[in-house]
Amino acid sequence: MNGTMKAVVARGHGSPAVLAVEDIAIPRPGPGQIQVRVEAAALNGCDLDLLSGRMAEAAPLEFPHVPGGDFAGTVTEAGEGVTRFAVGDDVFGTGFPRATGRFSAAFSRPTSLTTGAMAEYAVLEADAPAVTHRPPALHAERAAALPISGLTALALLREGRVQPGESVLVIGATGGVGSVVVPLLAAAQAHVIATAGAADEEHVRRLGADEVIDHLTTDLAAEMSRRYPDGVDAMVNLALPASRLIDVSRGIRRGGRLMNATHPAPQPGTHERDDLTMATLSGAARPGDLDDLAARAVKGTLPPAVGRRYRLADGPRAYREFVQEHTRGKLIVAVGASA
């Protein structure tokens, strides 16, 4: 398939202001790769980290650069040697656009080069565990909202080894990862305390939170000390910078666990607690992880997490609003005919 396609494009590093919708060449799959007609794509903070240039050494970009990792769509062409997928298969997953080094290695083969999802077509590695078949009952927009958030949530819960009845504080429960972490913790029968503004309280309770603390009007550390004088069993941090974790982590019981998903991670030796199990995690895909998340979404264990929806023509605006406005759940760009 030759010709051009519409895509969100950056011609150099910068803020979302450098993004524009342009006509560029349709990418073709090489050996071991598939071409996908994208139906929906989701925004993630790492899209903007890559775009900014802050990670240029670990994850260099080629320009013109199409952002976006999380996607759902249909296979339109398969490269030589591909047996896992066939033309016409509905798929979803994630990949890091033209990124090499440790970033892409977490999600696919270290040598993989994929094109961005904010486009009508994308190319991905067919054997990457972060790409899989999409069940017919899972809508494309819901599927696109799952990969990075869901894989990060699974990594956090595996590290935390949360048991039924344990108390877990989730800081930043309204975002994309929180929209998966909270229901997964609820399904594991944990007692979930979530931070959220008053306008989002009903939302996080629907996700499965048992208690909600308004972090906008309440001193979180003081409120946790009041409610849980002996501390909670575990904490999942999805929002606070490392500089604030020292204070808030006093609300974890002795021998408890702190699972962090924010970067940069706390530096060794800077934390005053030596009794905590601490880990900073991101969402590396294991074989079967996306299938697990899809099954949970179809079953209803994971509620829909689509916050705002945009057309491809509004993709640059979506990234600007991702930075400038409060986000509940995932921001989705509808690319296909339904857009």
Rank of each mutant, 00 (worst) to 15 (best):
R84W: 06
A313L: 15
Y121R: 11
G269W: 02
G283M: 03
H191V: 14
A186I: 02
V212E: 00
A209T: 01
L156I: 12
P266L: 05
D210R: 05
E77C: 07
R311I: 10
S249F: 02
L113I: 12
Q33R: 07
G300C: 08
L156E: 07
H139N: 14
D89Q: 13
K6E: 13
A58Y: 13
T111S: 15
A234C: 11
E125N: 11
S282C: 15
R309E: 04
T114A: 14
G14L: 14
A190P: 11
T174A: 01
L138I: 11
L302S: 05
A313R: 14
V9F: 09
A305S: 08
L184Q: 05
M5V: 07
A153G: 04
A221L: 08
A196W: 00
S225F: 12
Y228Q: 09
L220Y: 03
M5W: 04
A295K: 15
P136V: 07
Q33K: 10
F92N: 03
T152M: 07
L43Q: 02
R109E: 14
M259Q: 07
D23V: 04
A198E: 02
E272M: 15
G197K: 00
A239V: 02
D214R: 01
E272A: 15
D70N: 07
S112D: 15
E77R: 13
N2F: 04
L185S: 02
R158Y: 10
G95C: 06
A294V: 08
M259P: 05
M5C: 12
A221F: 05
A187N: 12
E223A: 11
T262S: 13
H215R: 04
G69K: 01
L43M: 06
A130F: 04
E325V: 12
A42E: 04
R98W: 10
F96R: 10
G45H: 03
V82D: 06
A284N: 10
G208I: 01
G197V: 00
S149D: 02
T94M: 14
V168D: 02
G3E: 07
N260G: 11
T74K: 12
I332C: 02
I193G: 01
L138K: 13
H139T: 14
L238K: 01
L157M: 12
S338M: 15
D247Y: 04
F63K: 05
R134C: 08
H263G: 12
R311Y: 06
V66I: 14
A128N: 03
I26W: 01
P64I: 08
L312I: 05
D214V: 01
D219H: 13
A222P: 10
V177E: 00
T217S: 06
V66P: 02
G93E: 03
N44S: 09
G255H: 13
D70M: 05
P316N: 10
I34G: 04
T218S: 05
E39A: 10
R311N: 11
A279R: 15
T114D: 12
P135H: 11
V335L: 10
Y310H: 03
L50V: 10
A187T: 09
R109C: 08
V177Q: 00
E80W: 03
R109Q: 15
V306A: 04
A221I: 08
A285P: 08
T4C: 08
R109K: 15
H271Y: 05
P287N: 09
D230A: 14
P135N: 13
R308N: 03
F103L: 15
H191C: 10
P304F: 03
R98S: 10
